[in-house]
Design a protein around this nucleic acid. Structure first.
Lengths: 260, 260
DNA sequence: GTGATTGGAAAGTTTGACTCTCCAGCGCGG
DNA sequence: CCGCGCTGGAGAGTCAAACTTTCCAATCAC
């Protein structure tokens, strides 16, 4: 029952074979013809009332109207609905955040600025609870110091990040928490995390490089940030459990003689 | 204005020097003597009403009663209050989740099982929105397949994770989302993320190894999971912004001749 | 001894994300 | 050509979470 360190070898074709049985039957968008809201609801699994609500909130484009009380929807609406659901359920984004994302999806702004900050501004802001609000407490000075240290850290890393990016405040929140609890006092404790984060960002961007269409690129970035972020947290949790167990095993076998 | 890849060199004493100016004035818990709820509120910056609410919810131990309407609190209460606030504000944990964490903090269960799963069960569950609920849709079979693929993946990685760990379901949710959108079909896309996650778990556990006291260890693990998790997300967001800008620069200079 | 504080509990508030209810207009099987 | 069941649209209602307010009697602090 010994727990050992995973090795993470490169993936071989034989490994891929292992997962073939699971890839059957996923997705079949045969009939893409126009349909009404009831059919849209049936295909997406989202209640009609909720779809209406999303329409009102501007998360989904309105259908092609055919009469005063009739409209038709197509494959694009179905996909958008699925994207919205993923952002909400997997990413836990609020309606307001999703609205910002779809605004970038629909609007034809130029990529450089918009796309680069999409994740930071619309998706990560508010993901970690409500950090970043109500900083009017007595420790406002303390917090400003945390932010200043964080900004110095970001510059020291050589990261080119917008001065107003919420990620700076979020990182400052994390530092401020560590300081309040006396766990750490300067942002250098995040150095290794920064290295990992950068490596991960490279990998993720590599994986969706071949995308050409503008809207598809934005969608891939938004969905990717949310889904891979969620997946990473789950994997980190599992790794923690595995590693903790590993070390407890080691501690146990060190304090007690071999059992058999 | 060229954006370049950060290098992440090892931290030198000169680097540490750089952050010294910021570490002044943080934390000063001089007088730890017993005090009443008003003083506790003043020191923590939490409203009296909210402290009462936390007491009712069992997030904070009750004070030492001195009369029918009087009780005294000490340094332990102040620290607990700060921990609760960090879990809530930085980690975005719900009251119910925090209650589970403090139950482990207070309860004297044996470490092996409890501590190993603390993060997975109490903290990560529900962090990514409400993924994991209401799986009674028509795609229930599809989801079961995603979970099966995920479990195969976890075994393939060699991770020793509890069979009922919510992290499995969370990872399955992520895979299911990718499949629903046709972005990926098997869990091997998460391989690099798993490697990173494991490396990060090792680093984090290393950083809080010297803790000996049981309650302090649990606290460090819970706070660490929340704070470093939040920090990592922020850093990932910045790395994405930096890297996206880097590639757009490269694309621009490739399509156009050097500007100067 | 008198005004501010406290412990405790019940009731009220706010926000977010739906969900329900209506009401005319539409569509079509009988 | 007619009733019954979808529609689109909008307002009101619901529900849970996390506080916040309000009350009361007991205390404390000066």
């Amino acid at each position: 029952m010994a727990v050992s360190r995973p090795q993470f070898p490169p993936v071989t074709p034989a490994d891929r074979e292992l997962f073939n049985p699971f890839t059957k039957g996923s997705q079949q968008d045969d009939d893409q013809g126009p349909f009404r809201i009831g059919e849209l609801s049936r295909r997406s699994g989202v209640a009609v009332g909720t779809i209406k609500f999303y329409l009102r909130e501007g998360l989904i484009p309105v259908g092609q109207p055919t009469a005063k009380t009739q409209a038709l929807y197509g494959a694009a609406h179905l996909r958008r609905l699925r994207v919205v659901r993923v952002l909400a359920e997997v990413g836990g984004l609020s309606i307001a955040q999703i609205r910002e994302v779809v605004a970038v999806l629909d609007g034809g702004g130029d990529l450089p600025g918009e796309l680069a900050q999409l994740v930071s501004y619309s998706i990560d802001r508010g993901r970690t609870g409500n950090a970043g609000r109500s900083r009017e407490g007595l420790d406002a000075d303390d917090w400003e110091q945390s932010l200043a240290a964080t900004n110095t850290f970001v510059s020291w890393l050589g990261l080119d990040v917008d001065a107003g990016a919420p990620a700076r405040a979020n990182l400052a929140d994390a530092l401020h928490a560590l300081r309040a609890l006396g766990i750490a006092h300067d942002p250098l404790v995040f150095t290794e995390h920064a290295r990992m984060a950068y490596e991960l960002a490279e990998i993720e961007i590599d994986s969706l490089d071949p995308v050409t269409d503008r809207s598809a690129a934005v969608e891939a970035i938004a969905v990717g940030a949310v889904v891979f972020g969620s997946a990473f947290i789950a994997l980190r949790s599992m790794a923690q459990e595995h590693e903790t167990r590993l070390r407890l095993d080691a501690a146990a076998s060190a304090s007690a003689p071999p059992a058999s």
